[in-house]
């Protein structure tokens, strides 16, 4: 039996988890304050996963980039590949929060969605972009 200490990254509470591992399988998790902590410990010991947040280029919007987020966790070891793909994407304003920007990224089954709404830039705006 192997014991491992982990810090849950699910939320800012940063719970300290103690995980018991036997033959590459998680047999018990303690120190978590919610079910998410247990699920985190289980994937973390086998193949870590993370939520990915970044930006994509947007045209016609009030800003040059639009923040986006993965709808759920994707494997940590695919994050850099996902970034490569997302960097090539370009969207057009207007966008609504939750709009799918890239479907099923890298075949993970996870969509990359808009993290905010962004209106079209209109000439009446005093700021120039």
């Amino acid at each position: 039996m192997m014991e491992k200490e982990l810090i849950c990254v699910n939320c800012p509470m940063s719970c300290r988890l103690t995980v018991q591992i036997e033959e590459n399988k998680v047999v018990s998790v303690s120190g978590n304050s919610c079910p998410r902590g247990k699920a985190y410990a289980e994937t973390e010991c086998i193949r870590p996963e993370r939520i990915l947040t970044t930006t994509v280029r947007i045209t016609g919007g009030i800003h040059r980039v639009l923040p986006v987020i993965s709808e759920s966790e994707i494997p940590l070891d695919r994050i850099m590949d996902a970034m490569e793909l997302i960097r090539s994407a370009q969207v057009k304003a207007p966008v609504q929060v939750g709009d799918v920007i890239m479907e099923n990224i890298l075949g993970t089954g996870v969509n990359i969605v808009a993290a905010r709404s962004m209106d079209k830039f209109s000439c009446s705006d005093t700021s120039q972009k």
Partner: peptide, 15 residues
Amino acid sequence: LQTFQEQLSGPAYAE
């Protein structure tokens, strides 16, 4: 997490 019982990005929280 406390306000909406879900995890949001900063811009989504502001929205």
